[in-house]
């Protein structure tokens, strides 16, 4: 039983990391109906920003909340800038094109970042020295937890609430929702559409930057292709939860994490990746809009 609960805790830890990335996917989709495949590579860039910032300022010599927050802020700002440029130069020129063109461009941007990253950072994995010591493990009835797991879970839930707040309670959030219904009508109401879309991208990319740092804190090996599988899983999580729905993304991610953890614990590790896509297929068959998604009939 203890083992089962430990698997559950491990799974929630893994799921909360998927959640951090899934939040960005789902928000951009919710506002723009665009699957931003480059999102998982912005997450990779986030980890590398953190790596170089921490190397430059020797942050890992003084691990603690201060260093972690410094790296987090630098990486979120860096990623927001990258997000702005990706939107400005890759997606905005295609705003009026069919959606498939934008989708293919997203794949292109993703590949560009992955292999450009290999060129720039080198293809060999880097070791990201921890910015926060895991500290003494916390035991709760034989189940083991550590500070980092709690922080990651806490941060992803906090970001989820913050996103809900921004989208539903602020002026810019109202503008984002308006743009998501209709670009033209929003523009007629005096909403600066370009600005709102840029803001959405920057917000999503900042989330990816935070995810990069927090994932690297747990798995201190980073490489330019680290976003591929992890990002794909996070994307599946967003779809499972109902893409476009912020709470759904977190729920989907936690389900994915726990399911993976259980499969490895009780079956075999080789089913790990297959499982993610099996869940996706099942959800698409029985609940095409995802767990929390609303089924919207598209008019032809």
């Amino acid at each position: 039983m203890t083992e089962f609960i430990q698997h559950l805790v491990n799974g929630l830890g893994l799921g909360s990391m998927y959640a951090l990335i899934a939040l960005g996917y789902t928000m951009v989709f919710g506002i723009l109906q665009l699957i931003n495949f480059a999102h998982s590579d912005v997450y990779m860039l986030g980890a590398f920003f953190g790596y170089y910032v921490s190397k430059f300022f020797n942050l890992s010599l003084h691990p603690g909340y201060g260093s972690l927050s410094a790296a987090l802020i630098c990486s979120m700002v860096g990623c927001a800038i990258v997000g702005f440029f990706i939107e400005r130069f890759a997606y905005r020129p295609l705003r009026k094109s069919p959606r498939i063109n934008v989708l293919i461009t997203a794949v292109g941007v993703s590949l560009f970042l992955e292999f450009g990253g290999q060129l720039l950072f080198g293809a060999d994995p880097k070791y990201f020295a921890p910015l926060l010591e895991a500290g003494e493990p916390i035991f709760i009835g034989g189940v083991q937890l550590n500070r980092i797991q709690l922080i990651v879970l806490g941060v992803s839930l906090a970001l989820m609430l913050a996103l809900q707040f921004i989208i539903f309670k602020t002026k810019i959030g109202r503008a984002m929702r308006a743009v998501s219904y209709s670009h033209t009508n929003a523009a007629l109401m005096g909403i600066p559409v370009d600005f709102v879309i840029s803001f959405t991208f920057m917000l999503g990319s900042a989330l990816a930057g935070a995810a990069g740092i927090l994932v690297a804190l747990t798995y201190p090996k980073i490489d330019p292709l680290m976003g591929m599988m992890f990002g794909l899983k996070a994307f599946v999580a967003a779809v499972v939860g109902g893409i476009g729905n912020v709470t759904g993304a977190v729920i989907g991610a936690l389900i994915m994490g726990v399911a993976e953890s259980m499969v490895i614990g009780y079956l075999a590790s080789t089913y790990r990746d297959a499982l993610a896509f099996a869940i996706l297929i099942i959800i698409l068959l029985f609940r095409p809009a995802g767990i929390l998604g609303k089924n919207v009939k598209e008019k032809v």
């Binding site: 083992e3 698997h7 993976e260 259980m262």
Partner: peptide, 10 residues
């Protein structure tokens, strides 16, 4: 892989 916690828990 980067996560081995499930295997190690077993």
């Amino acid at each position: 892989d980067v996560d081995f916690k499930s295997q190690l828990t077993s």
